[in-house]
Design a protein around this nucleic acid. Sequence first.
DNA 1: GAGTGGTCTAGACCACTGA
DNA 2: CAGTGGTCTAGACCACTCA
Lengths: 253, 253
Amino acid sequence: MTTMLDNFDDISKASPEPIYRQIKRSIQKRIDSGEWHIGYKLPSENDLVTALEVSRMTIHRALRELNQEGLIERVHGLGSFVAERPRHASLIALQDIALEIEAAGGSHRSRVLSLESVYASPAVTELMQLDENAPLFRLRAVHYQDELPLQLESRYVNPEAMPDFIRQDFTRTTATAYLLGQFKPDEMEHRVRAVLPDQQTCELLQISDGQPCLQLTRRTWTRDRVVTYVTLTYPGDRYELSARYATDEYQLR
Amino acid sequence: MTTMLDNFDDISKASPEPIYRQIKRSIQKRIDSGEWHIGYKLPSENDLVTALEVSRMTIHRALRELNQEGLIERVHGLGSFVAERPRHASLIALQDIALEIEAAGGSHRSRVLSLESVYASPAVTELMQLDENAPLFRLRAVHYQDELPLQLESRYVNPEAMPDFIRQDFTRTTATAYLLGQFKPDEMEHRVRAVLPDQQTCELLQISDGQPCLQLTRRTWTRDRVVTYVTLTYPGDRYELSARYATDEYQLR
DNA sequence: GAGTGGTCTAGACCACTGA
DNA sequence: CAGTGGTCTAGACCACTCA
């Protein structure tokens, strides 16, 4: 057992990051890497108290939050276990389409339609809380799952926040992956609608006539500034959003 | 100040309900009732410690969770304040369509199309994890906002869990409101799709030809049993799901 | 019964805000 | 500066699960 526990050497009481959060990251890393597989029984709170030399309240908070986030399941009197799968799915989480497709066993490919500098239209100005005619980067791309179009991405990016965005090769990485590596979102807004695609969208997504699309628009803020505003359009018959979660984590009002 | 604080008489250390949760409910009640309006500065943690005679960790946990749930905003060094509006909107929360419409300033009316006992079809049997041909209650209703149809509700209910469901008058209350009063959901699954409505749905929702619908299906569990399975269909041009939230509450994977 | 997590206490130190 | 929330400790009691 100690072989498992004595490699918690990445936790430092001197670090400015709270201990409970370091513990969370450390455990999450083990789960993500597969070192702790699904169903694996975590060390008990008391084991961790002695191994990490922190108080039980600190351990407890880390585990409680990991439980809320769906990474582990806890059973009173039994122990804590690595959860089947994260319970918060794409309805909530910001996720990279490439990872999503690959997690489902498919292969992902991006086709970049355009990547350019533009000036904000009045509508986009309003949505991104910018000045009139502010410069913007715009990316349009189609994402394929096994060579079948799954998502049309139309993205605006604030060049003041992300000056290097326009120099990236988005056939090699996705915009989501690039942006997540560059900044930490403070706040997000999601909107989901059902729409009829225009003719160009139909062609790009290879949609048969009259089929509806699921359209997700997202605005992402960092430090009170809209960094990116993206519209993701999915063929209605090939995609759905879903989420499953324990309800005690949420208010039911 | 004490006039505000000494009416926390609904909190009992003898109750089986954890104190921090009693405190949450008590504060939430004040916010819901408007007694503590938007922007109102809550008593400080130390004030609450002396008023309620509990430890600060307990107060802190209650306030921290209310903050996570978006009911209050906390500013380090300043205090806690009633939030503008709950940050988790309908993408996550289970909410009553009647309350949703009234919150938006509209008036709500339900038209019950049918409320009957049926036997589960193979598809529903599977989704509700029941035996073949198990008896079920089925409700079909249209919900109007200001006399314009906004939602078509098609709901199955497990009669073993909710035997009185079929005797309710769903023109006076909604099924969501009734069910939430009867049980506490343990787990929920949401799926959101874009669909083309069939002809009957078009007529019921007064949708013009070819317009898509947003369709949300939800399964709700209590004690490992599916209590209700509902399909909610919205006209695509009249409804969208949205949510806005601070991202540090979520994993971004 | 031994082991587990859920809650709670009464202190403590710190970083942050505003005056 | 006094007030605030963020974190942490070292104990404690309890309810739950499984043997």
